[in-house]
């Protein structure tokens, strides 16, 4: 009996449709979020993350409708992030059926939001998402960025992760802005630094191009879970294939009968 490492496909959602940004531009449309989430569940995904990248807040109701539909259909946990600015937003998304919310910019601006959410809904519902970018070259440091990676805060990413835990976060979703979309692998050093500094689970994000990258993040990077988008989304690998790769190398993951299936046959 071992707590397994989680594999978490991420779906970027814009105006109710799934897209995946490569380096935050070049969006490619690829379908219905609920259908996508169900396919990932069948493949053996452990959780799903929806990231609402819709720029305006006019589409808030569209996202809530997706949350309701997903909660109705899916029988694994899912997280919703993007555009959650206030306690009222946290409440709306959780009451619509999401298991967790992910706070990014709003948590930096108002860390009390973490505490407020955790006290009422429990720490396990509150994920703090950190977008981090390398600064300096001799002693590596990482700076927290907000507003979808557009605004530098001057805050140290490791210190912010520690503070987020103190404020009541149940999990850290750590994205390397340098590696996101590169498919060159996760920022293993950043992931390890944060994982070793906090006592809550860390989800590595940004840079997965193949199963070996995920293996690195979960072993050398000491992450508890790995989030990836494009390698699953464009059917380069199924979740089942990634898990098979990890199992062969001794990483504990949950297997689902009949889930390992090559994409090459499916496409």
């Amino acid at each position: 009996m071992t707590l397994t490492k989680r594999i978490i496909p991420c779906l970027d959602v814009d105006k109710g449709r799934v897209v995946k940004g490569i380096k935050f531009v070049n969006l490619r449309d690829a379908g219905d979020p609920v259908e996508q989430a169900l396919e990932y569940e069948r493949q053996g995904a452990d959780e799903i993350v929806f990231l609402d990248i819709t720029a305006s807040s006019d589409n808030r109701e569209t996202m809530l409708e997706i949350v309701r539909k997903t909660a109705y259909e899916l029988s694994i946990p899912f997280t919703v992030g993007g555009g959650i600015r206030s306690y009222a937003d946290v409440r709306r998304v959780l009451m619509a059926g999401a298991d967790k919310v992910s706070l990014n910019t709003a948590a930096v601006k108002n860390p009390k939001l973490i505490t407020e959410g955790a006290e009422i809904f429990g720490s396990q519902c509150i994920v703090v998402a950190i977008d981090a970018k390398r600064v300096g070259c001799e002693e590596p440091r990482w700076e927290v960025y907000t507003h979808g990676g557009r605004v530098a805060t001057g805050i140290d990413a490791v210190a912010w992760a520690v503070k987020a835990e103190e404020m009541g976060a149940g999990e850290i979703l750590l994205t390397s802005m340098d590696f996101d979309g590169s498919k060159d692998g996760y920022d293993v050093e950043l992931t390890r630094r944060v994982s070793e500094s906090v006592n809550i689970p860390v989800i590595a994000s940004g840079g997965a191009g193949n199963p070996a990258h995920i293996y690195e993040a979960l072993t050398a990077g000491k992450a508890d879970a790995a989030l990836a988008a494009s390698i699953f989304h464009y059917a380069e690998f199924t979740v089942g294939e990634v898990k098979e790769y990890l199992l062969e190398r001794g990483v504990p993951v949950r297997t689902v009968r009949g889930a390992v299936r090559s994409c090459k046959n499916a496409v």
Binding site: T2, L3, T4, R6, D46, Q124, G170, N199, I200, A225
Partner: peptide
């Protein structure tokens, strides 16, 4: 151990 115990675990 990290708390909460969050994720998939097997049973005996």
């Amino acid at each position: 151990v990290k708390v909460p115990h969050m994720g998939w675990n097997s049973i005996k």
